[in-house]
Simulated scan of single mutants.
Amino acid sequence: MDRIKIQNLEVFGHHGVFSEETKLGQKFLVNATMYTNTRAAGYSDDLEKSINYGEVCHFITGYMQNHTFKLIEAVAEHMAQAMLMEYPLLQKLDLEIRKPWAPIGLPLENVSVEISRGWHTVYLSAGSNLGERQQFLRAAVRLLQECSEIRNLKVSKLMETAPYGYTEQPAFLNGAIELETLFTPQELLIVIHKIEAELGRERVIHWGPRTIDLDIVFYDDEIVAESELIIPHIDMQNRLFVLEPLYMLCPGKVHPVLHKTVAQLRQELISKTQNKWSNE
């Protein structure tokens, strides 16, 4: 991805742990590397197709002057999020906040914090088999859309499927959701659990009936193996109700562990199921 760089932007701000720092203020230096696609702007010579670095410099200056934080870690975190939400063409950001002559009682040129933040592409599996199933699924999408850290939602068509695992329950409506988010995988898990709780999800029977079920299937190409979170979804390759809606959104998405596309996994599962039926 192409990069636009801002180096050593001088900003006067009031950030620090000590009261003198927040009252008197001091100079900070900001370095920003902005990841975007500059090809359209390069061919057209049209500033509207790129990120206006002049506007960004004024945005950074205004943000640091109008906010006060104790830690430069907090300055970097909050400002990075503000920038990513302000500029739609900004996909990723490397941001460094440098604090010259930090008051530690020793000769020091500067202290700095450098972070990388950006938008991540996520695919969710969504299902419901209690009550007004379609309304619950629509409500889940609406609640996701209301999160400022989530954008560009796309939703597959819904399909009705037989229950998986625990079969003594009503049929499901299933779909898939594509979105971009600033949340980490762990933060996104907390968000979707809150949405499930708000929509009446109760975790009583494993694989049991539910008003809404949201699972993270893919998060970029990341592999996460934690007690509460496994990405890619550990059993997606065996679930046609996951693969079929995903196929509508991202047939060419490659599973980072199995190294097969969603289209390949779907076709393999269909063939496996057909062979099973023919042998019975």
Rank of each mutant, 00 (worst) to 15 (best):
Q81G: 15
M79C: 06
Q26A: 09
T68N: 11
N66G: 11
H78T: 10
Q26V: 08
E73I: 00
A41C: 01
A80R: 04
T61N: 15
Y53M: 03
I60L: 15
G54S: 14
D45I: 01
V17E: 04
K23V: 13
L71I: 09
K27E: 10
C57F: 10
N66V: 05
L71A: 12
T22E: 07
A82Y: 06
H78Y: 12
A41P: 00
A32G: 07
A76W: 00
N52M: 04
L29W: 07
L24K: 10
D46Y: 04
K70N: 15
C57H: 07
T33D: 15
A40M: 03
G16M: 03
M64T: 09
K23D: 09
K23Y: 06
T38M: 06
F69R: 03
S19M: 09
G62F: 13
N31P: 06
G42A: 04
G42D: 04
M79T: 06
V56I: 14
Y63M: 06
Y35D: 08
M34V: 11
Y35R: 06
S44Q: 11
M79Y: 05
N52E: 01
H67L: 00
A80F: 01
H67F: 05
Y63R: 04
H78V: 09
Q26K: 10
N37C: 01
S50R: 00
N66F: 07
